[in-house]
Design a protein around this nucleic acid. Sequence first.
DNA 1: TGATAATAAGACCGATCGGTCTTATACGCA
DNA 2: TGCGTATAAGACCGATCGGTCTTATTATCA
Lengths: 217, 217
Amino acid sequence: MQIVEAATAVMGRQGFQQTSIEDVIHEAGLCGKGHFYHYFKSKEELGYAVLLHQFDVFAESGLAVLRDPMLPPLARLDEFIDWIVESHAERGCCEGVSPCGALATEMAEQHEGFRKHVDALFERWTGQLQALFWEARPQMVDDVDTEGLARFIVASLEGALFMSRVKRDVAVLEHVATGLRRFVMSHVRVDERREAPLAIREMVAGTERSVGKESGR
Amino acid sequence: MQIVEAATAVMGRQGFQQTSIEDVIHEAGLCGKGHFYHYFKSKEELGYAVLLHQFDVFAESGLAVLRDPMLPPLARLDEFIDWIVESHAERGCCEGVSPCGALATEMAEQHEGFRKHVDALFERWTGQLQALFWEARPQMVDDVDTEGLARFIVASLEGALFMSRVKRDVAVLEHVATGLRRFVMSHVRVDERREAPLAIREMVAGTERSVGKESGR
DNA sequence: TGATAATAAGACCGATCGGTCTTATACGCA
DNA sequence: TGCGTATAAGACCGATCGGTCTTATTATCA
């Protein structure tokens, strides 16, 4: 439905509360409230549709990377982090890709029903990361806490997206992306690090150096 | 001013937009709009006052820990993380301690002036962490990127606070706190780890184990 | 005592907005 | 040709809310 897309766009710019039905109608190029209320019972219903639409986009173009059958698990994670950074930069750090897009944040905060939806997406996202780490166990240290790792990554990315948005600067997100790779790396067995795609980064140097120090004690 | 405190309280519960001037008046126990407009030019001005008040509380009861002259730098960081987790749990994961309190988030998103204020506080917070790491250099690996570390911590904590709020569950924040200590730990020189207060945690076991593996390659 | 300011209470205006309802035109299909 | 549905346009209602203005009472201080 074109209405949902238009609403997603304009709400992404102005927020849910700040967007009137007339704004949506205008953005969608259609005329008359009657037309709108022919499709949607209320603004709230439109809100749910917009949330779901945003999540679909996120799941299809983002989360899908985490399941790419052609790549080993850690390479997929690497791709995914890249995707987040890139798609955020593309949009000039304003509009949101993730469930922490300004819109979802606002909506989760102001309406219990919306909050539950956002929560559910977080769960889906975390679950998928967890599955990825489960799959990557052979490359990782024995006692790895897959759930903890997954939650840590989601939370850090969310925070980074939020801060980048407030600062209007991708730099924070990039810093965090680098830090996260390093963090994940520290859960990868040493003998697997050369193969791990997460290692194909400049920060590997740092990791390797500190590893050197450790073995040198 | 009692008005600001009342406004902070009620807005913390309902958000900025959702709070009417009458709500504030009622919460503050005073009567008549005249009284309110005697002190504040507009709702926007009240918004600034509320933001500043929130930040003062955060700076005085939170950031102050980062400068405690009685503790070594990494111990202060440890205390600070504890403080965040505890004060968040105290408030039932709803109202915000940090500049990512639901309120500041909403306001930053909806008003350029507010955004700048929130940004400024992030800067202050990051700066203080950076100073702390600078002070802790002797205990840390040589090439440590103090700014990157500081930004990483702030972003992760923000994200964790946000997710805990959405999930209505401190668990995420606790996970992230543990992860962060571990992350910081990986930037501490091996020969300093026994002394480092960040090590006084159960996850040290994990770190030490993986260190064992590393030196065993 | 008298002037100034703080407190109290609330009527009122103008604007916005969600939602309903009416009316009229265009299109698809039997 | 005729019926139903999608499109178009917008008047209208009721409610909320920010902000102004009025009025009256209580402290404060010279």
